[in-house]
């Protein structure tokens, strides 16, 4: 485990609550970015991340220190995000609501219209992948985010999500195939 994290945790456990602020500051951006992709909603993402930090603080005594602190934190946050997403089931994104064409209804940033065409194409493909990602099951979304966005290895993903490595393999496979099918469907509609 990271030495700074270890020191902070021991300080928190010795009664210095403020030391926990350092850990929050250190990991909030990374965690928020990942959780946002899972819950697909800024407010929900903020709630999940904040709740995860508080839950981590409460459970700090049970953190054994044999894994990285952020791996443990990810486990808490991803479990919370997946269960929240399951509760809400099919909820249209407030950030990127899709119309019947699968295109974003969010007002377009006028500045992008002045950019070269490849930039626009890139933004379109980004939106498409974002939309496709949001249509995946939360479990599939989580593994893809951890793999492609966060760059974790299968073993780490298995540890974060607390599932066997074989399940990680099969979930990632199904997620990729499903994502491809959604993207193809979106491309055909256009």
């Amino acid at each position: 485990m990271n030495a700074d994290d270890r020191r902070c945790i021991s300080e928190v456990l010795n009664g210095r609550t403020e030391a926990f602020g350092f850990l929050v500051k250190k990991y909030q951006d990374r965690l928020y970015n990942a959780i946002l992709r899972v819950v697909d909603n800024r407010e929900d993402a903020l709630d999940v991340v904040q709740e995860s930090f508080i839950h981590a603080y409460q459970s700090l005594n049970s953190f054994k220190g044999d894994a990285e602190f952020f791996t443990w934190l990810y486990r808490i946050a991803f479990n919370a995000a997946i269960s929240q997403k399951r509760k809400r089931k099919v909820q249209l994104s407030l950030d990127l609501p899709a119309n019947e064409n699968g295109r974003s209804q969010e007002p377009e940033d006028q500045s992008t219209l002045n950019q070269p065409s490849d930039r626009i194409e890139q933004e379109e493909s980004d939106q498409r992948i974002h939309l496709a990602l949001s249509r995946l099951a939360p479990e599939h979304r989580a593994v893809l985010i951890l793999k492609d966005l966060e760059g974790h290895r299968y073993e780490e993903i298995a540890e974060i999500l607390d599932i066997p490595i074989g399940t990680v393999r099969s979930r990632i496979h199904r997620a990729r195939v499903e994502l491809r099918e959604i993207i193809e469907a979106l491309e055909n509609k256009q």
């Binding site: 403020e18 930090f53 492609d148």
Partner: peptide, 18 residues
């Protein structure tokens, strides 16, 4: 997927968590 923009946390959560 890798190229997707990273979104930083819009607020500093440390103060609100503490």
């Amino acid at each position: 997927l890798r190229r997707l923009k990273t979104t930083n946390c819009p607020v500093d959560l440390s103060a609100s968590v503490i």
